[in-house]
Design a protein around this nucleic acid. Structure first.
Lengths: 242, 242
DNA sequence: TTCATCTCTTGATCTGTGTCAAAGCGGGCA
DNA sequence: TGCCCGCTTTGACACAGATCAAGAGATGAA
């Protein structure tokens, strides 16, 4: 992965500063963070952290996509979160996670050593507050996802997923004509509580209807935003999942 | 509901102190909390707060059961949380919730006025920290529930739900021979992403198999803990949902 | 280039759970 | 006491999505 870039980036010029932990830090605090910071890279498919591993770092995603997933005894798998650039891994006061973190694409993390980070946290209420806000946002997203998993049809799930991608790319300022579909059909299925065959069929269906168009199996454009929104099953305005 | 009790209770003698916001407060802090505190009662079926309502209070549940639920346009409903005694409603830095809060039974809340509570929070890092921990626990629970909703069979859902009830009652020290099933079949269905008919059939099935026994439609005993655990689909040890 | 491998698509069939319907409680109220 | 109404159970049937299976594209290595 792009090590040169990773090593070049400083927290003070972090591309994801607007959402990351350092969002509201002053220069002194940034300097403190810089001291305990390093960039770590993972290649697609690599496991960043196994369920139950002791965590030495807390991290922000700089680029790439990582997944959080849980597995039942018999191998059934459910993704419980998707980490896009600017998302945070790790939590104050806990040293382990109850799910696997896997790099879905090549990933670069901006990592902070856990112990000094927590000391800094204790002295810097606004970073702490920022983490609470992020946890609350995650909780909201998890609850929206519960509605999706519990009540939505396959078609609605797919539409909601695409809508979420569209929205996230707007936020991150990369509103390209072609959106990258960053996951395999199987990973999407795992996220949506479906099988890969159903995902494939529903994507084909939306393509046939002219709602989306593929330039490549992993790249697509939304050609009918209204129809897509309609297919999500959410209220026209609300139902925004971040 | 039991107003006499509600008015008699003081925070310093709060039955739920071990998990509530005041868990680690010293006497001065308890006194501060007492000043901005009141008890509020709701009768079964009453809506405590509608989605989007401005919140004047943050609260802990003292007794009774409340549900958090979300509704899609066409009326499909998904419960996204269950509040048992000692659970907390409200969040720092936000004045609205994105779901309805409904009293499933008669409910008493220990409520704090939001604004003074937030001022207190700013000055009292350990209460703030306690809230972060609670948010993290909720997030863990939400993620376990995502696995349930996305991957488990109806039978596993029911078994997991009962297992959760058993565990929660242990924690709260009310390990009675008969557990109260605090919700209607419809509410259970809403929590588990099922229909009420399926819930009824699965409960009947577990009864037939001798896993649980009913003394009343709303009261039951687990007669075969091993079989119940086995039916949850979780690992023998892990998979604890709180 | 060709082969091997992985991902995706499409078809045929099966099945768990939803839907629709009717009847059985059981508690509260007149 | 008896009726009513909300909750629950049970049955018959339908269907969305899972499962099983085959083959078509891609991608990358030799």
């Amino acid at each position: 992965m792009n090590i040169q870039l990773a090593e070049r980036v400083k927290c003070s010029e972090c591309p994801i500063r607007h959402r990351a932990v350092c969002a509201r830090c002053d220069d002194d605090e940034i300097e403190m963070l810089d001291k305990i910071k390093s960039y770590r890279s993972f290649t697609a498919g690599e496991t960043i952290s196994w369920r139950g591993d002791e965590l030495s770092h807390v991290s922000s995603v700089v680029h790439g996509i990582a997944t959080l997933s849980k597995t039942l005894d018999d191998g059934r798998m459910q993704m419980v979160g998707l980490l896009l650039p600017s998302d945070f891994i790790g939590r104050p006061g806990r040293t382990t996670l109850d799910f696997d973190v896997v790099a879905a694409s090549d990933v670069t993390l901006c990592s902070f050593e856990r112990k000094p980070f927590e000391r800094l946290l204790a002295e810097t209420p606004h970073i702490s507050q920022r983490l609470v806000e992020m946890a609350m946002d995650e909780l909201d997203a998890a609850r929206d996802w519960m509605v999706l998993l519990g009540r939505k049809t396959a078609r609605e799930k797919i539409a909601t997923f695409i809508q979420m991608l569209v929205q996230r790319s707007h936020v991150d300022g990369t509103d390209l004509p072609d959106l990258a579909l960053p996951l395999t059909r199987e990973e999407i299925a795992s996220y949506l509580g479906l099988t890969l065959e159903t995902v494939s069929r529903q994507l084909t269906q939306l393509k046939k209807e002219g709602v989306i168009a593929f330039s490549d199996r992993r790249k697509f454009t939304v050609t009918d935003h209204a129809a897509l929104l309609d297919a999500t099953g959410d209220d026209a305005d609300g139902g925004v999942i971040v």
